[in-house]
Design a binder for these strands. Structure first.
Lengths: 148, 148
DNA sequence: TACATTAGTTGTAATATGCATCTGTAGAGG
DNA sequence: CCTCTACAGATGCATATTACAACTAATGTA
């Protein structure tokens, strides 16, 4: 098998994985009652320190206007709160409410058990190989642009 | 390292890969002038036989109303055409125009060279391992739901 | 022939998103 | 101290994506 064939098979697998991950996102949206953007924001807020709007926009890779509205929705749903920063009143500190933290914990628990189950479905002797391969693939992809 | 740790590391890698693939999609949208839905539709139409609307909806995992409008856009852009089926006039055969085929070929060329480059960045002796690992992962994920 | 089924389209509405613009705050130079 | 600039965030506006429901047209069936 030459490199062309390998590239082709790699592409097939990545495409399939992409599709599957997309379907999982749809599932998440259906079952956890948040849109995907909101879900990402909650995970971001739950994992890190209270974030500014621009921080959040950067980590979500979205416009701050978009994120501002996403945060509006979270605030309306009593999932997050905005607080004016004491040091610099231009900044807003966004953090999760108790309800938001519960949702975050719930998402985390779900994701953990999801990946626990996946690991359980992979033969023990392949665990390291799979994890390392993903890392190798990521390193290779990271440096590449798909459109020159 | 126990299974919990492995699951965690697997999750990290998959999350990173997901994010990277998302960024690639944004790149594609920016550079090829089609929305992602349109791009998927073009690839689907380019790869297979002329498809009916429902075929296309099924393979794109979208509502047929959504796909109908996506096809409208492709038709307006002279990328695809609708043709009434001769056997059963309820059906529409959707196919690519010459322009659409050119776009398809261009996407294919881009994707091929993208994956060729990735393979080139991965050490030769890891090629089989990476491809097989993706397959193993996919098999494991396929049977799993993320929300019980 | 009348009724049910199927393929596709269109009306409506929710959501997401970006660009441009606006407001308020902070910092820098004179 | 005042003014000008830069920055954080919010909002107006325009558009795109998508789903659900209702509709039209064609086909199959009892």
């Amino acid at each position: 098998m030459d490199k062309k064939d390998r590239a082709k098979r790699l592409r097939e697998q990545v495409t399939l994985l992409e599709r599957k991950l997309g379907m999982l996102e749809d599932e998440i949206v259906d079952c956890c009652g948040l849109t995907m953007a909101q879900c990402h924001a909650v995970v971001e807020l739950g994992t890190g320190e209270p974030a500014s709007l621009n921080d959040l926009a950067r980590s979500l890779n979205l416009e701050n206007s978009t994120v501002s509205r996403t945060v509006n929705n979270l605030v309306n749903g009593e999932i997050a709160v905005r607080a004016e920063s004491a040091e610099d009143r231009r900044y807003v500190n966004i953090s999760l409410t108790e309800k938001g933290k519960d949702i975050f914990e719930n998402i985390e628990t779900n994701m953990e058990s999801f990946f626990d189950n996946i690991i359980r479905r992979i033969p023990d002797e392949k665990h390291d190989q799979v994890i390392e391969s993903l890392k190798v693939l990521l390193d290779a992809i990271s440096e590449e642009k798909c459109c020159r």
